[in-house]
């Protein structure tokens, strides 16, 4: 998971940003590799999805705060009843969606429980 970091204020961004929203033109943005570990801040179990995600439902949508302090919207791969606020999670590489049977397959980051 490659995000960015503002060397001026130290904030890490994933999704990556090319302008620091706090320092703006005074910010100096560099590439930054995130650990892929974090925790669930809030979540919802999606029962009604748009067509390209319908095969996955029900699935767990969540906002995860990474160790580096930045936050992202993602899916947690677990049973709907397993997820809770504060659950530790780690990133995995999964298919995000497939454009039908003939289109592009989009890959990206999702998370799984990281329970010791």
């Amino acid at each position: 998971m490659v995000g960015t970091k503002c060397k001026t204020c130290g904030k890490v961004f994933f999704p990556p940003r090319s302008v620091c929203p706090h320092c703006r033109r005074n910010g100096k943005i560099v590439e930054y590799k995130c650990s892929g570990k974090g925790e669930v801040l809030t979540f919802s179990v999606i029962h009604s999805a748009s067509d390209q995600y319908a095969a996955m439902k029900p699935y767990v949508l969540a906002i995860v705060e990474l160790e580096e302090g930045t936050r992202m919207t993602t899916q947690i791969i677990c049973e709907p009843e397993e997820v809770y606020i504060g659950m530790p999670v780690k990133s995995v590489f999964r298919v995000l969606d497939r454009e039908g049977t003939e289109g592009i397959i989009h890959y990206g980051t999702k998370f799984v429980p990281n329970l010791a």
């Binding site: 999704p15 801040l41 809030t42 979540f43 919802s44 999606i46 009604s48 999805a49 748009s50 995600y53 996955m56 699935y59 949508l61 969540a62 906002i63 992202m72 919207t73 993602t74 899916q75 606020i85 995000l96 969606d97 989009h106 990206g108 999702k110």
Partner: peptide
């Protein structure tokens, strides 16, 4: 919403407001 970083992750509009509700109820 943010197509690239919310919708592509599977976020629907009800899903985003549901996460607000989850946070609020908590």
């Amino acid at each position: 919403a943010d197509r690239e970083w919310e919708s592509f992750a599977g976020a629907t509009f009800p899903g985003l407001y549901a996460m607000i509700a989850c946070d609020y109820m908590n």
